[in-house]
Design a protein around this nucleic acid. Structure first.
Lengths: 166, 166
DNA sequence: GCATAATAGGTAGTATACTACGTAATTTTC
DNA sequence: GAAAATTACGTAGTATACTACCTATTATGC
């Protein structure tokens, strides 16, 4: 190995640190998302919560957190904001009096459908520089990293957890 | 195209949204970094600022923000915390009385050298699931996305900006 | 040279993402 | 069936990352 051969993983400069690139790309994606959805005043995480509830109708906070891989307290904040806007309701579970559920409203349903195209456009713009093949490879690598490191985060995703009843 | 052929870019489910994967990976990397560096009580962004100042000695807030691609106000917060710990000093620029500089202290210098191995270990653990070739491809794709979308963020990176004098 | 622009920084407010701690309800263990 | 452990949620505090608005200083245009 001569001096022009790149070392396998040299994290010296910022641009050689995967964590740095990921932070920056997260920042960029959020900016693109907010710009595309500016007329709806919605954030990526808020839309993630709404997406889950669009499919599942009614869930408790912990299940939502597990579904999107976010912290329980973060989800509580997000839900509070979405409730304030009338996109969610928060009935108390009959089966478990500890659990405060989140249920998407009709308004929330319509909202998701209205925002969906703009969310898709944000994803499209974000990945526009890539060829189809590159895109597929990137997604495969990101999913791999995500699954293998799932437990490393304090808010691991738990897709299997069942929903509460009302 | 039959029904088993994947569409080119279908963002329906969370796992098919690049922005979602990036958010999750950012979360995971931060968790790994904090765990590895727990004895030093330092965050990725704080270490990023220190890394820049380790190389450049003294910079104003805007230049630091441009270097790491972070918001000016965020950098101001980060600098305040690092100053509180004695890792930075904040002299006022002689050339420009508006500019408040950040200069790394001897303690800050030693701190960077002490933390470096743990930062590297965090990056290594984060990317451990990938083969060498996969790693190289991932970094290339991430850098490509970052450069092509640089202006999309409100805090674009400006590596070329010159540093202030003291 | 002087009015205007742009720039550097500060403050305050919001959103995401955590930690730590506390309470109430449920489940487990014996 | 009662004590202990777990779970669901809440509050408060911190860090990153923005926006919006403000002042002070510097640069520009005429």
């Amino acid at each position: 190995m001569n001096e022009t051969t790149p070392k396998r993983r040299d994290f010296t400069s910022l641009w050689d640190r995967p964590g740095f690139l990921i932070r920056r790309l997260h920042q960029i994606h959020v900016a693109l998302f907010l710009e595309e959805c500016s007329e709806f005043n919605i954030t990526p995480v808020q839309f993630g919560v709404l997406t889950v509830l669009y499919d599942r109708e009614t869930l408790d906070q912990v299940t939502i957190a597990n579904q999107i891989g976010a912290d329980r307290n973060t989800v509580a904040d997000v839900i509070r904001r979405l409730e304030r806007r009338g996109l969610l309701e928060r009935p108390v579970s009959v089966a478990d009096k500890r659990a405060k559920l989140a249920r998407i409203t009709d308004e929330g349903h319509a909202f998701v459908e209205a925002v969906q195209p703009r969310m898709i456009e944000a994803q499209r713009r974000f990945t526009q520089p890539l060829e189809r093949e590159e895109y597929d490879i990137l997604m495969k690598l990101l999913r791999n990293l995500m699954q293998e490191n799932n437990e490393a985060s304090r808010a691991p995703m738990r897709p299997g957890v069942l929903q509460h009843d009302a």
